[in-house]
């Protein structure tokens, strides 16, 4: 290379290029669209293309969408159902994922690798097909539903017996498939956390006469709280905004927020309302995240 162009490139150009390109891209294709959504939430629907308009005079914006958001039972119910489904799915992922993560740390080194790969492998296959696999199992004609129904019928009195359990198109199905889809997100951070714990603490506690479950309660569990929170957020956040699972296996009468946004935008062509619901959903996600950041900053400060 020769000349001033190369000199410029060495000094500043390469640095500007490396910072500038991703910056420009994210501002143009991520930040700007998001600003459009926020602005859109203050517009009103109109019979024109694109189907929205602002007021002709000052202050130009309307708060009608947000008024509807807090008064219409549709949106409030969708919010409650989303929080409920996401919270139950997170809890079930924790109850199943925690012992799994602990079991992996107790295995030998090469078995650990294999188990981690087995937990992660479904994540690399198609998300849609994993939901689809459960549609196959939950249908009333499937061997799975028949087996569960038979098991249920042997334990309940004859009057309660069922020809087949309704699994598809229920809230239960949504939670079940979310647990299935997001379980790896719970197991991996928990494993990373539990793996680092100092085993000598357990031994010391055992030597001092603690029982095994006491060691777990007093040492392992408190020390693994950061892993529990990280895993919990990784499950809770995508579960809150989930669209595919409730659309395929859920009950149309109990919509989650993601589905409401899609319906407002698609069928109803109410872009301002869809935008307002989207903004509300983001607020519901940002609050737990800020709590997490606060918590982590505190923990960091405590550690140093």
């Amino acid at each position: 290379m020769s000349g001033s162009a190369a000199g410029w490139f060495n000094r500043r150009g390469w640095r500007d290029l490396i910072i500038g390109s991703p910056y420009l891209w994210l501002v143009l294709f991520f930040l700007l669209p998001f600003v459009i959504v926020i602005v859109m939430s203050f517009a009103k629907t109109a019979t024109q293309s694109p189907p929205f308009a602002f007021l002709p005079d000052w202050p130009f914006i309307r708060f009608e969408t947000y008024h509807r958001l807090f008064t219409s039972s549709l949106y409030i119910r969708a919010g409650i159902i989303s929080v409920y489904n996401a919270a139950v799915a997170t809890l079930l992922c924790l109850l199943l994922g925690y012992p799994m993560a602990l079991a992996i740390t107790r295995a030998g080194k090469s078995l650990q690798r294999l188990l981690i790969m087995l937990v992660v492998l479904p994540f690399w296959t198609s998300f849609l097909l994993r939901v689809y696999a459960w549609i196959g199992l939950m249908g009333k004609n499937s061997w799975f539903n028949k087996a569960i129904t038979a098991a249920y019928n042997t334990f309940v009195p004859a009057a309660w017996e069922l020809p087949g359990i309704q699994m598809m198109n229920t809230n239960f199905a949504v939670v079940l498939v979310m647990v299935y889809s997001y379980l790896p997100f719970m197991v991996l951070p928990l494993y990373a956390n539990l793996e680092k714990l100092d085993g000598t603490l357990n031994e010391a506690a055992m030597d001092l006469g603690s029982r095994r479950w006491e060691v777990f309660r007093d040492i392992t569990l408190p020390l693994s709280i950061p892993g529990i929170i990280a895993g919990g957020l990784l499950v809770f956040i995508p579960a809150m905004g989930e669209l595919i699972i409730p659309s395929l296996v859920g009950n149309a009468g109990d919509p989650m927020i993601g589905r409401v946004i899609q319906q407002e935008f698609g069928q109803n062509r109410d872009w301002p309302m869809a935008s307002a619901v989207a903004v509300a959903l983001l607020f519901m996600l940002v609050v737990p995240l800020m709590l997490y950041n606060h918590f982590e900053a505190k923990a960091q400060a405590g550690a140093h």
Partner: peptide, 26 residues
Amino acid sequence: MKQRSTFLFSVMAFGLAFLYVPILSM
């Protein structure tokens, strides 16, 4: 010291079955 726990390994087995039975059935 690695102690064996039947509880942990049965949950692990259940978890793997939970992850793979739907895929294998499909």
